[in-house]
Computed example of a mutant assay.
Amino acid sequence: MTGLLVVTAVSAEAEAVRAGLDDQAVTVLPVGVGPAAAGAATARLLALAEAAGRPYRGVVSAGIGGGFVGRVAVGDTVLATRSVAADLGAESPEGFIPVDELGMPPELLGVGNAVPADPGLLAALRTALPGASVGAVLTVSTVTGTAAGTDALAQRHPDAVVEAMEGYGVAVAAAQAGVPFAELRTVSNPIGPRDRGAWRMKEAFAALTEAAHALR
């Protein structure tokens, strides 16, 4: 068995994580943007490691994301209690219907709309990062960019703290491989109407480097 696999969307996030690590037992790799790319690439990495007789002990989806105003602040570090496919479901005149509530047979739902973080891995990260906020992290394929969209997500997910684009895909890959999963994010911007002037990428990457020590 080998160590921890940490996957990010892009190289800049991977570099920020590596800058906070000095541990050869942690593998850090960018796997692409969005749940499909991230999930497929993570599944391949887990399968290759298992086939080589060196399965990973755990998988962490790490990177930056948008934070819900009033719940977290720009620069904060967040640990996911669960990774939620926030836009997986159906629209209706009454509003969004999560895939869990569409009446599909359990065998077709798979893990449903959300994958909880592994309790042991989450507990270890919380101990190492006592100042981190904890809550649901939403995975979306289209980043929220309006006040109405932000309000709708906040109402549907009162425990959500961050929105990102990969966690759920990575979580599904880990669940199907039977590998413990967790998600770690730092906040680069508030969710809402797009305002590049409000983004604080440098601060978010610095926070990600600082948080990476918990992955040792």
Rank of each mutant, 00 (worst) to 15 (best):
T2E: 07
T2V: 03
G3E: 10
A9K: 11
V10R: 10
S11I: 00
A12N: 06
E13Y: 06
V17Y: 03
V17C: 00
G20H: 03
G20Y: 01
G20Q: 09
L21R: 12
D22P: 04
D22E: 14
Q24C: 07
Q24H: 02
V26H: 10
T27C: 04
T27S: 09
T27H: 11
L29R: 15
V31T: 09
G32S: 07
A37S: 04
A40Q: 06
T42M: 13
A43Y: 01
L46K: 02
A47W: 00
A49T: 02
A51L: 10
A52T: 09
Y56N: 00
R57C: 04
G58Y: 12
V59G: 01
S61T: 08
G63C: 11
F68M: 10
F68Y: 13
G70F: 03
R71C: 00
V72A: 10
A73H: 08
T77D: 07
T81L: 12
V84C: 12
A85S: 04
A86E: 11
D87I: 12
G89C: 08
G89H: 02
S92D: 04
E94W: 11
G95I: 14
G95Y: 05
I97R: 15
I97K: 14
V99E: 00
D100V: 13
L102R: 10
G103F: 04
P106L: 09
G112W: 11
N113F: 10
A117S: 15
D118C: 03
G120W: 09
L122R: 14
A123E: 13
L125C: 15
L129H: 11
G131V: 13
A132D: 09
G135D: 05
L138P: 02
S141E: 14
S141G: 15
T142A: 15
T144W: 03
T144L: 05
A152E: 11
Q155Y: 02
P158D: 02
A160Q: 07
V162A: 01
E163M: 04
A164N: 14
A164L: 07
Y168P: 00
A174S: 15
Q176A: 10
A177M: 08
V187Q: 03
S188N: 12
P193V: 10
P193H: 08
R194F: 01
A198S: 14
W199N: 02
K202C: 00
K202S: 04
A204T: 01
H213V: 15
A214D: 13
